[in-house]
Each structure stands twice: as structure tokens, then as C-alpha cells.
């Protein structure tokens, strides 16, 4: 199964990047392979390089990697219920990485834990330390996951659909929280989501993925106001909104994403695309630069190719 097929991207210090796509498009797998979180026995990762501050993550020993993960790079997952240990108190779970990554005493660690919980705007921080995960709601659990990710003031926070399991009201609170934290801590952010609306106000740049490939990469404003790839256009159109007029029918993308075990020879989206031609089915387009900040993988934008 080819979950991710030859993707390249870079992230500047302090920048926020959104990765958008439907389920099974490889958005989680791509970032998890970047930080080598996937089990090495069942997954084959090949890359020219995965660089983090001039160091290649692929060359690091497990020990060196451990120093970076949780310290310089940390991650928040989709389901907080499954990421927290149900038999340990919140306090123990926050203090554990603190003691592993820094040399502070238990008392100080506890104080720091309270500070972190206050940073993520948890009410009654001292009381929460004594609680078990099941005593808290999903939104509060996710705040704790974020607090734990921020323990060592990471350079990069990776958030893998952190709000998908939450209600819209709680989602709005978490998004605002992340915005505030980014302003005060100056960290880079990779935010994975399947909801284009969520990334709109949050990130600087967006990557759209489809069937393991990047199909479009550009600044957030360009993506929403001047989308180029037919898939991005169709995704934006299938989003219903709460303002403005509504058409009787929602635009849909017909069909389903391709089978990742047997990817088509040509463009993966060709089968569902309105504008497909013979070339689209025969040859896969590469991601090409159409302006300084805009990349797109579609034959439509390749010069000198007649559709």
C-alpha cells in the first residue's frame, strides 16, 4: 500500500502550515513518518532527506531521536481519550515528561505542571492534577494533551486533527487557544485537518493532499480565493456555509478516492475530475511552480501541453 508518494515540503521557523485532505489521503502518515513515529517493521520510509535544523532525522539514532521528540518537536493527536493513560492521574502524566526532558525536582515539576495547565486556560489547575482522564470532558482532555506537548517549549508543534472529535464550540476554543499560544511562544505549527474551514484562520500556508500526493501548495489566502487544482476547487464548493445564498443542490465530487494498493498510472484525481483528458489518465502530473508561492500538480497548468 502506497500511503504517501514522493512528497516534499519545507517549513520555516515559526511558520504555520496546514495539511488538508480526505481520510486516507496520507496526511497523517506523511507527518508521522517525518518524525519516525511509525513502526519501522511494518512501514518502509524512503526519502532523500528529512531535515530539522540542518540535522537529518533519518540519520539519528533512536536515542538522539528521543531527545528531539517531545522536546523540540511535539505532537497532539486526534483522540485525546486514547492518548492519555486511563490509570494514571493527569498530574503524573504531565510530570513524567517534565522529569525526563528537564532536570527539575518533583516539587518544581508540579509547579510547572500547574503553570502549563494555566497556560492552556484550564480552570482549577491544582485540582485537575489529581483527576483521572475519564473524569474530564473531551475538550479538557485535549487541552491537557496540548499542555503536555508544550512542556519543553517546542520549536514545532504537530497537531493531527486535534479538534475533529470535539464539538464546534469547543473546537473554536481550542483554535483560539492555539492562535494565542503561537503568538506568545513563537513556535512553528503543522495542523492536519480534513476541514478547510478550520485551517482558514489559523495557518499561513496550506498543502492539499490527495491519494498520497500533494496536489496544491500555496499561501492560505490564495488557496481560498484563487484555488487552481480542480480537486481543491471541488472541495471548496462542496463546503456548505452559513451565510449568503444557498443553491438547491450541493456540488459534489462524484466517485470515491482511488485504491491506494493499486494507484492509477495517471493523475490520481483524473477519474473524478471534470476536466480530465487522455493525458491525465496516462501520465501523472508533477507538482510545478505556477507563481512564487503557488505550486500545483495538474496538466492544466503545464505550459505547452495541449489539452
Amino acid at each position: 500500500m502506497k500511503a504517501v508518494n514522493g512528497i516534499s515540503y519545507s517549513l520555516r521557523k515559526g511558520e504555520a502550515l496546514g495539511i488538508v485532505g480526505e481520510s486516507g489521503c496520507g496526511k497523517s502518515v506523511s507527518v508521522k513518518s517525518v518524525i519516525r513515529l511509525l513502526p519501522p517493521k511494518s512501514v518502509r520510509i524512503s526519502a532523500d532527506y528529512i531535515r530539522f535544523f540542518e540535522r537529518d532525522i533519518l540519520d539519528l539514532s533512536t536515542r538522539e531521536l528521543r531527545k528531539i521528540l517531545g522536546n523540540k518537536i511535539s505532537m497532539v493527536f486526534q483522540d485525546p481519550m486514547n492518548s492519555l493513560n486511563p490509570v494514571l492521574t493527569i498530574g503524573r502524566q504531565i510530570i513524567e515528561p517534565l522529569i525526563i526532558h528537564t532536570d527539575i525536582s518533583k516539587d518544581k515539576a508540579k509547579k510547572k505542571a500547574v503553570e502549563l495547565l494555566e497556560l492552556v486556560k484550564m480552570p482549577d489547575a491544582v485540582k485537575i492534577l489529581e483527576c483521572y482522564p475519564h473524569e474530564l470532558s473531551g475538550g479538557m482532555q485535549q487541552r491537557i494533551m496540548i499542555a503536555m506537548a508544550l512542556i519543553c517549549s517546542p520549536e514545532l508543534l504537530i497537531a493531527d486533527e486535534p479538534t475533529t472529535a470535539l464539538d464546534v464550540t469547543i473546537q473554536a476554543q481550542i483554535i483560539d487557544l492555539i492562535k494565542d499560544l503561537r503568538n506568545s511562544l513563537d513556535m512553528a505549527l503543522i495542523w492536519i485537518s480534513h476541514d478547510l474551514g478550520v485551517v482558514a484562520g489559523l495557518v499561513d500556508r496550506v498543502i492539499v493532499m490527495y491519494a498520497g500526493c500533494i496536489v496544491e501548495e500555496t499561501l492560505v489566502d490564495d488557496l481560498f480565493y484563487h484555488p487552481k487544482h480542480p480537486y481543491t476547487k471541488a472541495l471548496l464548493k462542496s463546503l456548505p456555509c452559513v451565510e449568503g445564498r444557498i443553491d438547491k443542490k450541493l456540488e459534489t465530487i462524484s466517485g470515491y478516492p482511488p485504491d491506494l494498493i493499486q494507484l492509477p498510472k495517471g493523475c490520481c484525481f483524473a477519474e473524478r475530475c471534470k476536466y480530465n483528458s487522455k493525458l491525465c489518465i496516462e501520465k501523472r502530473p508533477e507538482l510545478i511552480q505556477v507563481s512564487d508561492t503557488h505550486k500545483v500538480a495538474c496538466w492544466e497548468y503545464v505550459k505547452g501541453v495541449k489539452q
Binding site: 464546534v168 464550540t169 473554536a172 476541514d195 474551514g197 482558514a200 489566502d221 481560498f224 452559513v242
Partner: peptide, 10 residues
């Protein structure tokens, strides 16, 4: 609370 696909407004 609903996020909208409109970065400037958002």
C-alpha cells in the same frame, strides 16, 4: 463558532 472557508474574515 463555525469555521468558514474565508481566511481574511476568519
Amino acid at each position: 463558532s463555525i469555521p468558514t472557508p474565508d481566511p481574511i474574515n476568519e
